[in-house]
């Protein structure tokens, strides 16, 4: 006779449950955040394209303005005026690496890559690091759209005044969304580093541990689905233990002796109805979130 798997399964379930419970950290997650230290010297503008080469005074003014905003908003800000064309993917990698090399991996700040290579299509990119992943990242489309009013279209000649306006309004936008405080359920995860960015008890966290609220949500979701699996399993097996009557009385019909005295299918009438087909115009598909959790790109 076959061995009953119930005992084995029960033991396995107890072991797995114990392992899961042990793996849950009950203390507050370790905060790896590098808080803004008030030093805005690293913030500013990098003019790779040399747009302001002919007007260094304006460049110094803009650079100073960015540093002032950096101090005021307590975040690192870097605006990069790209001098040559990079592919979209290269732009994203370059931006992230550049930010990390200037400000550090777990710092709070924004890196704004402006494609000023005169090539079409131009691809701008923003890196939202640390706290800004929660405060500003969700507004990236609004910021890009707003800045489109000041940036020249791709392939056209770029005037320094256009970039000047763009930088100024970029700073206004950063200020505008800086008061936004995300709720404690919201969190971001960097799939490359595996780090979580979230608010807990009003404090911003960068941690390798999942935020407790998210962990609780996952736990509740898992328990609910586990309960559904349990109930489906229970009722499906219970149903299998009901009596099944397989009797079929048709086998007792004596086909040799049975005789049809009338077997007719008489046509009575026929009618045709018609309906106009409703033409459905295809709606545009919803746009996906570009750039993942850390950044956001935009074609001009």
């Amino acid at each position: 006779m076959k061995k009953n798997p119930t005992t084995f399964l029960s033991i396995l379930a107890i072991i797995v449950l114990a392992a899961v419970i042990i793996s849950i950290p009950f203390s507050n997650p370790e905060n790896l955040r590098e808080e803004y230290d008030g030093d805005s010297s690293a913030s500013g503008i990098i003019d790779e394209a040399g747009i302001f080469d002919g007007d260094p005074e304006t460049f110094i003014e803009l650079d100073f303005m960015v540093q002032e905003y950096s101090e005021e908003l307590e975040m690192n800000i870097c605006i990069f005026l790209a001098g040559h064309r990079r592919s979209d993917e290269d732009t994203e990698i370059f931006s992230c690496d550049k930010y990390d090399s200037i400000f550090g991996e777990d710092s709070d700040g924004i890196f704004y890559y402006i494609d000023t290579s005169y090539k079409s299509p131009a691809y701008d990119y923003m890196v939202f690091n640390g706290k800004q992943g929660l405060t500003h990242h969700s507004h990236k489309e609004s910021i890009f759209s707003y800045l489109d009013n000041y940036l020249p279209s791709s392939g056209q000649t770029i005037r320094p005044s256009q970039i000047e306006d763009t930088i100024e309004h970029f700073c206004y936008e950063l200020e505008k969304y800086n008061d936004h405080t995300p709720n404690s359920v919201m969190f971001e995860r960097d799939s490359i580093t595996g780090k979580y960015y979230f608010y807990m008890d009003g404090e911003y966290y960068v941690s390798k541990d999942m935020p407790p609220t998210a962990r609780a949500l996952v736990l509740i979701g898992s328990l609910v689905i586990g309960l559904i699996v349990l109930l489906i399993c229970y009722f499906a097996i219970k149903k299998a233990y009901k009596f099944k009557n397989s009797a079929n009385p048709s086998i007792y019909v004596s086909h040799g002796e049975t005789r049809f005295t009338e077997k007719s299918d008489i046509f009575i009438r026929s009618y045709v109805s018609k309906h106009r087909i409703q033409s459905s115009s295809g709606g545009g598909g919803g746009g996906g979130r570009s750039g993942g959790g850390r950044g956001g790109g935009h074609h001009r």
């Binding site: 119930t6 379930a13 797995v16 586990g226 349990l230 097996i237 009596f243 099944k244």
Partner: peptide, 27 residues
Amino acid sequence: AGTPPLDKGKLKRFCASVGALAASALF
């Protein structure tokens, strides 16, 4: 033919184990 008797205790243990494993895996 016949109706097999169902040991509900055994079934509950089995289903609870399956549910617990599913919940653990999902978690």
